[in-house]
Design a protein around this nucleic acid. Structure first.
Length: 141
RNA sequence: GCGGAAGACCGGAUGGCCGCUUUGUGACACGAGCGAUCGUGCAUGGGGAGGAAAGUCCGGACUCCCAAAAGCAACGGUGCCGGGUAACACCCGGGCGGGGUAACCCGACGGACAGCGCCACAGAAAUGAAACCGCUUUGGGUCAUACCAGAGUAAGGGUGAAACGGUGGGGUAAGAGCCCACCGCAGGGCUGGUAACAGUCGUGGCACGGCAAGCCCCACCGGGAGCAAUGCCAAAUAGGGACCGCGUGUCAUCUGGCCUUCGGGCCAUGACGGGGCCGCUUUUGCCCCAGCAGGUCCGGGUUGGCAGCUGUAGCCGCAUCGGCAACGGUGCGGUCAGAGGAAUGGUCAUCGAACCGGGGGCAACCCCGGGGAACAGAAUCCGGCUUACAAGUCUUCCGCGCGG
RNA sequence: GCUGCUGUAGCUCAGAGGUAGAGCACUCCCUUGGUAAGGGAGAGGUCGAGAGUUCGAUUCUCUCCAGCAGCA
């Protein structure tokens, strides 16, 4: 009765990058100063978001084996509902991808964009995110 | 059946996978501690956005500040009457006015003889009522008008938002509430109503324009600020600047202490007096009268943590009693988010309204494919108001048409 | 979250119930060999939006919208 093909396609895309139990820890940025430091760092713009990456210095108090992420949406993105929805989707792609593809000791900040972040297909957001990570990690070497 | 009116409800559904937050339990693991225990993780069970969470327009609870209270003033608000409520600018019922064929809807709806102010342009005149153009008549004058002087009038006078009652009749030289009828107005009596107000009967012949969302008067209400309030801990910076108190009181010693050249002096204490503390007054209270301390504000630093923080004027459901109703009383049961760069979701599938395309049918409509759901996110908490809102559901009522 | 303030010509601001104005900028003309300055003339306004009060609203009242500032 149910069409067998369609649901599996969606699930594979989501499960393929489900993180295994790794020792890397994810933390969320809460301080305004951290966001301001990340603003002056290298960034990559994609249709759905802007990714900024900053390598922490050794003397900073945060543990060196953690990955820290921040999510931000200005008022330009829309009203409170639109901003919250954009941040949730950004949080989700970061949660799925960073434990595997992120580098410990780095701060990542994802910035939401008007209309696109909330409506773009999820699979494309994910591939764009991996692409952006590769660019940033490549330029560093 | 079509077109309306009022009220109430709902605010996509189901499932898979992966998460967030809070809380209960655990003989579990790790860390801290002598320990009670605490923190982190794990396992397992429960809870987790709205009718507007919005705008921040009112009213409160709560916290801090101004010495307390009363009166007055100032400032702000409310404004037909009665009731409800913790309170309100809210709600309910009634009155009056306006709109609609009706169901029903709307109304900042006290006072313009307490006073001041304004009423542009037009118009004879914009509030004291008269003057002006007119109308009529008497005398003079003339062939007759015209014209001059006197008397009587306020009907008429293109305007204007608004013109000193309106319409009709009588009356007159011409006219006029001069007289009469009806309408309006003012003031009085009676009746009904708690009241707003309504009805009715005389009287007066009309005097009294509009604006109070202009100042204002009257009645009533209100101290100010807000959870980024406020309290505590930690860290960090500075030991800074400005201003205010500003008056050296009298008496008592049979009180206490110290000093003494035995006159007394100093400190404490008491009484009186003076000064200061809310815009003013009164009462009460507090502080000061030689202490070098006190107070207020500014500047500088920190943008970390904890409490406040979620259950009560509670709220919700059911029953019952009182009330036209808002609402109140009683009983039983249930408890309902607590985040803090801010959780309450992400994703996939299925079902799904409007709408679009194709086909069928006289038509209502049916089939296939596409399509894919409004406004919108708690931030201390309640009661309202206002504004935004796709599609849908229910109840009652009104008008028109058709049929019985 | 709370509390204030402001929306008038392209820009900066006046105006306070009765035909909306100033300066700069713009267009045309004069002046100059040419330009600037100067002089003259002109154009440009849903007075943030919608209701209400008034005969009449940019002004008074209410409700929305947008922007700015302050408070730990």
């Amino acid at each position: 009765m149910t069409p067998p093909e369609a649901p599996k396609d969606g699930n594979i895309a989501a499960e393929g990058i489900t993180p295994p139990a790794v020792s890397v820890r994810l933390e969320t940025l809460t301080k305004r100063a951290d966001f301001q430091r990340a603003t002056r760092s290298p960034h990559v713009a994609k249709p759905g978001f802007v990714l900024q990456m900053r390598k922490r210095r050794v003397d900073e108090p945060a543990a060196p084996d953690t990955i820290r992420t921040g999510f931000t949406c200005s008022k330009k993105v829309g009203n409170a509902v639109a901003r919250n929805r954009a941040k949730r989707r950004l949080r989700e792609i970061a949660r799925l991808a960073l434990p595997i593809h992120g580098q410990p000791g780095n701060d990542y900040v994802l910035v939401g964009r008007k209309n696109v972040t909330a409506t773009l297909p999820f699979a494309q957001l994910q591939s764009d995110f991996l692409h952006a990570l590769n660019i940033l990690h490549g330029t560093r070497k």
